[in-house]
Design a protein around this nucleic acid. Structure first.
Lengths: 208, 208
DNA sequence: GGGGTGGCAGGACATTTGTCACGGTTGGTT
DNA sequence: AACCAACCGTGACAAATGTCCTGCCACCCC
């Protein structure tokens, strides 16, 4: 597969869930052409750690404290262009895949299917291939881009945890009327009946 | 640690997320006193698989399709009393721990902390010990039992995905007024301001 | 210049939601 | 028997929510 004395692939691993993180690090370490040179648990630790460890491939979870793996991917592209980025996530949301590609990711894996896929994906990413689940790619194309404007997305995101109109208006420095209008627009565009359904729909599509 | 020719510990693994499942199976298989004799991906496959494979320890995720790992644990206690149950979950919700104990579980692990804990927990469970994170135990005690009645919980659960009062009343065959009253009671008991916050609070405590 | 889109806000209105007070039934305790 | 808790329902009311309309400004594109 690889030449016996090929240089090892240096991997950065970003994953907040402890058991998953250490399991992946252990398993990847078993591959003799892969070395995990850094592991981080927060999104905002990705770039500093990458600048220090100079990995060939960064394996990033999306949902992490600090900042999203998607944001980290975009920043990595600018700060460490030679590093390939693989997104590894629980949820195969169409919008996530879209954003991952826009952030310059080399691949998009869901935390399903066997671990063997992982090492294979890392090698393929380093070879310059794009690694994407075909079914997911189809879903992302059919779902289309987010219909929400930035403000609508912001307001909807602020509403998910049960905040009232006046809470949101204070948090975003908008008038209550404006918040109403944005929420109404988001409800209309998502084809739902209230903010809760709208937020669920947006989240399901990765628009949030 | 164990006698060289001690019988291996037979483990059943129930976990729906593919990568986590295969990673855990692989890592546990590396321990020479542990053998993974069955893996399932759904809650309702736990008992049949256990009856066929006769494991010494069952390692159960909570959030699974089919049925909850907590329900599976309760059923296992009746159908295969010799089998120790370890609950392994993402969320250290106080109510989950409480319910796990009531279902006769031998231990409760969160998917944080290193994988090494796992093998140790399995050995300790088999030795008859209870394996519980002390911090979590304290939280479970201080949080107290759920203040919600069965109906309040049902109505709240039916409301989380954006259903309206009339949706819920149809689904549960109740009058709209009754649904209102239960929701209001749940909001009051959780000390929140609306159904969304109430549902979040209940979910956070594992009351849902 | 004109046209389109997005951000922002206000007003008016119907609907939904949350609260409260009340009455009734059932089942279990003391 | 008296009591309590949970269950189920009604009616009335205030507050929050969602919709629609209007208007203004800035920006970009043709």
């Amino acid at each position: 597969m690889t030449a016996p004395d090929a240089p090892v692939i240096r991997v950065l691993l970003a994953e907040d869930q402890g058991m998953m993180r250490s399991a992946l690090a252990l398993l990847l370490g078993l591959e003799d052409d892969i070395e995990v040179v850094a592991t981080v648990t927060r999104g905002d630790e990705v770039v500093p750690a990458a600048l220090a460890a100079r990995p060939d491939v960064a394996l990033l979870d999306i949902e992490m404290p600090g900042s999203s793996g998607l944001d980290a991917a975009a920043e990595l592209r600018d700060r460490l262009p030679g590093c390939r980025v693989l997104i590894l996530t629980t949820f195969g949301r169409p919008g996530y895949l879209r954003r991952a590609m826009e952030a310059g990711a080399a691949g998009f894996l869901v935390k399903d299917g066997p671990v063997e896929e992982l090492a294979a994906a890392i090698r393929r990413a380093l070879a310059g291939e794009k690694v994407i689940d075909p079914a997911l790619a189809a879903a992302a194309l059919s779902a289309g881009a987010s219909p929400l404007t930035d403000r609508e997305r912001e307001v909807l995101a602020a509403a998910v945890d049960g905040a009232t109109i006046s809470d949101i208006s204070r948090r975003l420095h908008l008038s209550e009327s404006t918040v109403r209008n944005y929420l109404s627009a988001a409800i209309g565009k998502t084809g739902t009946r209230n903010r809760i359904e709208a937020a669920r729909a947006a989240r399901h599509n990765g628009w949030l």
